[in-house]
Simulated assay, not measured.
Amino acid sequence: MKQLFITSAFVLLSLLSYSQDQKWSVEANYPIQLIKDRSDPKLAFDTSLKYRFLNTDLVHLGLDFNIGFERYKPGVNNDDTFKFTNYILQPKVFAEFDLPFVPKLHPVVGLGYSVFFYEQSGSISGVQLNSDNNSDGGFNLELGVTYDISKRFFIQAKYDYIRLHNKGVSTIDGESFSYNFTDNIDRLKVGVGLRF
């Protein structure tokens, strides 16, 4: 195990020191719900791996693959056991711009599709709520800005809009109900990144 860790660290440091064009980046973000009628997640994170396949003096075009996790525990009573967990996949294409007059600031635009895999179970105020493991999806638009701390490290803030189509079956106190509706999700992501 120790040898694997040392080898992995050596490979990562080699990539960081010898990569000249920095086509790859990794990011870690904290997502914040902007609509307050939703419960805030008790645990949430978002990670991303980006690859830039076209680099010019003005714009960098690439592919972005986000993976997110959110766990909610809404309820008002201590007896409430309801839990709702989202696993989010967000593949997208993005454009990152270089501004000649502010070289450390980079506006970013991304378009893609979000897929939510979720599970829910437990009770709220004595009412048992369950759902099969479901997946929903929808159009995703991302607008943001990154600021370079150094050549490799940056901080960022992004607005994430998802037009999510929900369809499935839920069970409330043993009775099944089907649902089919569209929902708008507005989130702010703040985080850090590393180019290599």
Rank of each mutant, 00 (worst) to 15 (best):
M1A: 13
M1F: 13
M1D: 15
Q3D: 15
F5G: 06
F5H: 13
S8N: 11
A9M: 15
A9F: 15
S14T: 13
L15V: 15
W24Y: 01
V26C: 06
V26H: 02
N29F: 06
N29M: 12
L34V: 13
I35R: 13
D37H: 06
R38P: 07
S39P: 02
D40I: 15
A44P: 05
D46Q: 00
D46G: 11
T47F: 11
K50Q: 13
F53M: 02
F53C: 02
T56M: 07
D57L: 02
L58H: 14
V59I: 12
G62M: 01
G68A: 04
R71F: 01
G75D: 09
G75K: 02
N78G: 08
D79K: 14
K83M: 15
F84I: 11
F84E: 02
I88R: 02
I88P: 00
L89D: 03
K92N: 10
F94W: 08
A95T: 04
L99N: 04
L99S: 02
V102R: 12
V102D: 11
P103G: 06
P103S: 12
P103K: 05
P103A: 12
K104Y: 07
K104P: 08
K104V: 00
K104W: 02
L105Y: 04
P107S: 01
V108G: 05
V108D: 04
V109K: 03
V109E: 03
G110I: 01
G110D: 05
L111N: 10
L111E: 09
G112I: 09
Y113H: 01
S114V: 10
Y118R: 00
Y118F: 12
Q120C: 04
Q120K: 07
G122Y: 00
G122C: 01
S125W: 10
G126V: 09
L129T: 07
L129A: 03
N130M: 12
S131I: 01
S131L: 06
D132V: 05
S135R: 00
S135G: 06
G138L: 02
N140R: 05
E142I: 06
G144R: 00
G144W: 07
G144V: 03
G144C: 00
V145E: 04
T146Q: 09
D148H: 09
I149L: 06
S150N: 08
K151Q: 14
D160S: 01
D160H: 00
R163S: 12
R163L: 13
R163C: 09
R163F: 12
N166F: 07
T171C: 07
D173A: 08
G174F: 01
E175I: 15
F177N: 09
Y179L: 03
N180H: 10
N180G: 11
D183M: 07
D186A: 11
D186Y: 13
K189A: 00
